[in-house]
Every structure is written in structure tokens, then in C-alpha cells.
Simulated scan of single mutants.
Amino acid sequence: MGSVLSGVGRFAYGARRGIRNLATVALLLSGTQAIAEPITLAALGDSLTQGYGLPQEDGFVPNLEAWLRAQGADVAVMNAGVSGDTTAGGLARVGWTLTPEVDAMIVALGGNDLLRGIDPAASRANLDGILREASGRGLPVLLIGLPAPGNYGPDFQRDFNAMYPELAETYDALYVENFLGPLTEGDQAQALREDMQEDGIHPNANGVDKIVAALGPVVMQLVERAR
């Protein structure tokens, strides 16, 4: 079943690219200059995406957009992060988040599911619904996870951690294991001092810079898929 859905996803956004290319050729043949529009990415997430506790310009989304543009990509990144949102909240609003101009989506949800101890089966079903919606619209996706701690037990940890890579494979999505990965490698005490806000949960401006630098190259792959 996974391979079938994966093939459908690739066909859908492959066909979408083909239609765009045909439209561009038609404009050139007619003597009309084609004006390329920027690629629009929707970043669907929670407070980590939204930029909780930071001035707007220091948040994840504006910094990611600036990083991509510095690499020469004509990209606009839409901030669809809502503080406190769960995977259920993301599923409830994905339909109206994916407006006609959206070309691809970043999905970074699950942290609040962890904080609330929500059954991984429910979180998985919600993420599946989000990815199915994007696939149905022919949109490529980057899925970004968070690792579960062991305090809910080994079964919870196993099921939660497995859902991200398995869903990414099913829907042929790009995948990053840990949104906060760049801050959790090495000296944890130093990371808390230098890269995190006082709550120990959300990155500060320095931490956002490190996250963007690590995620940026993968997001560039997403941009290429959306062309």
C-alpha cells in the first residue's frame, strides 16, 4: 500500500511540474515573456515553527526564508505555526492552510502530543491525514519529527518514533528526524545556556540560526521538488 501511495504522490507533483513547463513553453512560443513566480512553502507547525518568545524577525520562518533567498532561491515561506498546536490541530486547519499559491509544505508537529502523552496511534492518524491532504493536491512535503523520551514507556517511545519515518516513506516525503537536533548534539548544558530560552523548550535566536542552517539544505530539496 505504501509503494502505491508513494507512486501516486510522485506522479501527482510530477504531473504538476509538467503542466507548469508546458505553460511556460506556450508563453515563450506566443512571444510573451514568462515571469516566474516565487515558490511558496507553507510551514505547518506549533510554537517551534511560530517563533514563540522571539521577535518576529528572529523566528524560524523569516530566518528560513532569508537563508533560502541567500542561496538564490526565489521562495516565500508562509508561517502556519500555532503555539500549543497538536497534530489534531494541524489536521483541522491543513485544508485552509493549503491555499492555491502553496507549492509545498513543511510539517513539524508532534511536540505537544508528546507533552500531553497523546496515544501515538492518534498522532500517527492525524499526520497521515495531513500528508494525505498534501498528496491529494500534488504537493511535496518535508516531514520533521521530534524524538519521544522514555518516560511514557518503551512501547510509546517505539511507536511515536516510528511514525515519522514510516509516514515519510509511505508518502515519498522528505524527512528530518529531529527539529531540535542541531541543539541536542554535544554538550547539553552548553546548549541550554547558549541556544535555548529560559523555559528550556524553545530555541532563542542563536538556536534558531543553528536549526535553520541544518534544515536549510533539506528545504532546498523541497523547493526543487516543487519546481
Rank of each mutant, 00 (worst) to 15 (best):
N206F: 14
T184W: 06
M1P: 14
A36Y: 11
L114V: 11
A76S: 15
T32W: 10
P55I: 04
L167T: 06
I118N: 09
S47R: 02
A226C: 05
G31K: 05
G153L: 03
Q157F: 04
N206E: 14
V218W: 04
V75S: 09
L27F: 08
R93C: 02
E133F: 11
N21K: 13
A173R: 00
L109T: 02
T99Q: 12
G181T: 05
G7L: 11
N151F: 04
P217N: 08
D199G: 03
A108S: 14
L91C: 08
G216E: 09
P147E: 03
R16F: 00
A104F: 06
S123M: 03
A125P: 03
V8N: 07
T49M: 06
G72A: 10
T87H: 12
V25C: 10
G72T: 10
L27D: 10
F160Y: 13
V141S: 15
N79P: 01
R17Q: 14
G110W: 04
E198Q: 11
I201E: 03
L48G: 06
R93S: 06
A191N: 03
T87R: 01
G45R: 00
L68W: 10
D128W: 01
L180I: 04
L222M: 06
P217I: 03
Q50A: 11
D155V: 14
G150N: 12
L109M: 08
G136V: 08
V77P: 11
L41E: 09
E57N: 10
M220D: 12
R116C: 09
G207E: 09
E133T: 15
Q197C: 03
N126E: 15
G31W: 04
V94T: 01
A173N: 00
I39L: 11
G111D: 03
L167D: 07
L115A: 11
A148I: 13
D85P: 00
L174I: 01
A168K: 00
G84M: 04
A76T: 15
E185D: 09
V77A: 01
T49K: 08
A125L: 13
L215F: 09
V176A: 14
I130P: 04
A189C: 00
